[in-house]
Write a protein that binds this DNA or RNA. Structure first.
Lengths: 125, 125
DNA sequence: CGCCATACTTACCTTTTGGTGGGTAGCCCA
DNA sequence: TGGGCTACCCACCAAAAGGTAAGTATGGCG
């Protein structure tokens, strides 16, 4: 369990393994639009169509959106479903693994807010 | 509290704010060596000298190490202490904010391990 | 004097990432 | 015939990140 992790454990190599794991996890999330995409999928109750994602990720262009979605799909975070229609319809949803990102992202959000507050206090004093 | 976060809350803009916060947090952690540095500082009981970090972050070069340390310092994650000696001595330690990264990193580690196991199972079936 | 040690700095280069502006396929409708 | 719709692909360019190899400053020591 995450909350029981011992950063001062016996194995002197353990923090190297953890660094590797964390770097690995971040690699999946890196990219200017991935977090935005993931948060949009978290926020929506249903899968989102390509055009809908394009609309919701303000400022993204098609190439980037496709690229990031492809990487997220390859990394097992989202699924891509094609409907055999004309005009085409494709939608994207979080996988179980994508949904499992919730707690990690929640902790990152808490840290980011805490950090912002902390920095603001420093500035004002 | 992170564990009570409601991804399906009322405010339809909330997930945009969360995306922003998470992106912000990741921005601080992005960079090929930052997580390695942070994990080394977590693992060590004491502040680490530049040369010690260089030794522990296998494969890093001086320029990159300095660059990443500078950014981490600017972002409030590590402190840099200079001792007026010859030859020079400088050491680096986690700030309170750096230490507060523990839970987020722990969740990321759990997710990475879970993901690795999941992908391995898929490969073998 | 000349060399050592430490913690950097600098110039230069390669690789990766992000972005723009076009095009394509397939069917529908007028 | 010639648009319009959707979800892409491609050629090309710019900026950022990462990396190499050299140099700098300081004072102690033989």
């Amino acid at each position: 369990m995450a909350q029981d992790r011992d950063w001062k454990c016996g194995d002197p190599q353990q923090h190297l393994k953890w660094a590797e794991a964390t770097t690995d996890a971040l690699r999946v999330l890196e990219g200017k639009w991935k977090i935005v995409i993931i948060c949009q999928l978290f926020g929506a109750k249903e899968p989102l169509r390509f055009s809908e994602l394009e609309r919701r990720c303000e400022g993204v262009n098609q190439k980037m959106l496709i690229q990031q979605l492809k990487e997220l799909e390859k990394d097992g975070v989202v699924t891509r479903t094609v409907y055999p229609q004309v005009p085409p319809k494709v939608d994207y949803a979080l996988t179980e693994m994508g949904k499992a990102l919730g707690p990690a992202m929640a902790e990152l959000i808490d840290w980011a807010y805490m950090r912002r507050d902390r920095l603001e206090i420093k500035k004002s004093t």
